[in-house]
Simulated assay, not measured.
Amino acid sequence: MAQRSPSQLNLLLGVDKPVGCTSHDVVARLRRLLSERRVGHAGTLDPAASGVMVVGVGQATRLLGSITLDSKSYVAAISFGCETNTDDAEGEVTRSAPVPRQLLDRDVAGETVSCLVGTHMQVPPAFSAISVGGVRSYKRARAGEDVELPAREIEVISAVLLDVAAEGDGCVWTVAFTVSKGTYIRALARDLGRSLGSAAHLSALRRTTSGSVSLGECIALDDASPDLARERALDPVRVLGLPAVAIGEAALADVLCGRRLSPALLRERPELLQPGSRMCLVANDELRAIAQFDGRAVVMKEVFPQGIGGVRL
């Protein structure tokens, strides 16, 4: 079996995904632009949406399962007047309804939007990546199956009305949302229309933050290159949200062999001397391991032989 050659780039990168391509398309394009086979992403973004995507390159692909990205922020355009089978502008119209004139009243719209803040039980769109019996829901929906997904709890952390505009016989609300992981803005739009005695769908969406990563940290997909990726690499410690512990060359040699480290390593970080505490071990501005204190020693959970760049302590 041929041995995989070491990656030349090992880092996390923020990419501003353009409208019209899938998250898989972004990964395929980056593989070519960066000349790296190992590229993956954390958090899918619909083809009709744009904005923040967190991408792992090389060894950093191993971090993607550990990145929680617990909250995300968006600017959404919600169009009233009809629903679609996908709950966005890409789908076929399934229901039309009159738009009450009061929905053009900015005060009414603002108050309605602010009332969305809180926890809700949300039924995800049938056209979603949720697995049903081992098959993606959107594949079943495209095949003409009736897909019924169970409701799940989500949280709208903040919701702020930005604009109200007339559009034909309907109207469009532009809203800034911050929501918990797993929240579908398409479903928020659908349910908002129904709650107001009308119908609605999501007509545009831009993700402005994903976890701690903002649009200002992202590069344009077309600009991606190895040099720019190194220059604009995200700090993996900050993205993971774990404390950092600097180690010297002797400790690094032990880390690369997977050896346990003495708790003396944490003498200046007593808050980490709690069983179960997780941390990033950093050397020479690179993430070299994710470790955990087990009550007796610092134990390696993930070791990165090549080191993941971008660390800024």
Rank of each mutant, 00 (worst) to 15 (best):
S5P: 00
P6W: 02
S7A: 11
S7K: 00
L9W: 00
L12I: 04
G14D: 08
K17M: 02
P18E: 07
C21G: 00
C21V: 15
T22K: 10
D25N: 12
A28N: 15
R31T: 06
S35T: 02
E36R: 03
R38M: 08
H41Q: 06
H41W: 04
A42S: 13
G43M: 01
L45Y: 12
D46L: 08
D46S: 10
P47E: 12
V54I: 15
G56K: 10
G58D: 12
G58S: 12
A60S: 14
D70R: 04
Y74M: 07
A76W: 12
A76I: 12
A77Q: 15
S79W: 04
E83A: 13
T86Q: 13
T86C: 14
D87G: 02
E92A: 15
V93I: 15
R95W: 00
A97S: 15
D105N: 11
V113I: 14
S114I: 00
S114Y: 00
L116C: 04
H120G: 07
V123Q: 13
V123D: 00
P125C: 13
P125A: 14
A126H: 06
F127C: 06
S131N: 04
G134D: 01
Y138W: 05
Y138D: 00
A143E: 13
E145F: 14
E145G: 10
P150N: 07
P150Q: 11
E155K: 09
V156Q: 11
A165G: 02
A165T: 11
V172P: 10
F177M: 05
T183G: 04
I185T: 08
I185P: 08
R186Q: 09
R186C: 11
R186W: 10
R190A: 05
R190N: 14
G193R: 08
R194W: 00
L196I: 04
G197I: 06
G197Q: 07
T208V: 10
S210V: 00
S214M: 05
L215N: 03
G216Q: 10
D223M: 13
A224R: 12
S225Y: 09
S225V: 05
D227P: 01
L228S: 07
L228F: 09
A229T: 11
A229Y: 13
A229D: 11
R232C: 15
A233M: 09
L234K: 03
P236T: 13
R238L: 06
V239M: 07
L240Q: 04
L240A: 04
A244Y: 05
I247K: 11
G248C: 05
G248Y: 06
A250M: 08
A251H: 12
D254L: 11
G258E: 07
R260W: 04
S262N: 09
S262T: 14
A264I: 04
L265Q: 02
L265K: 04
L266C: 08
L272G: 05
Q274C: 06
P275N: 01
S277C: 02
S277R: 02
R278I: 03
M279Y: 03
V282S: 08
L287R: 11
R288T: 09
R288A: 10
A289G: 05
R296H: 11
R296Y: 08
V299A: 01
M300G: 02
K301T: 07
V303A: 02
V303E: 03
F304C: 05
P305Y: 03
V311Q: 03
L313C: 08
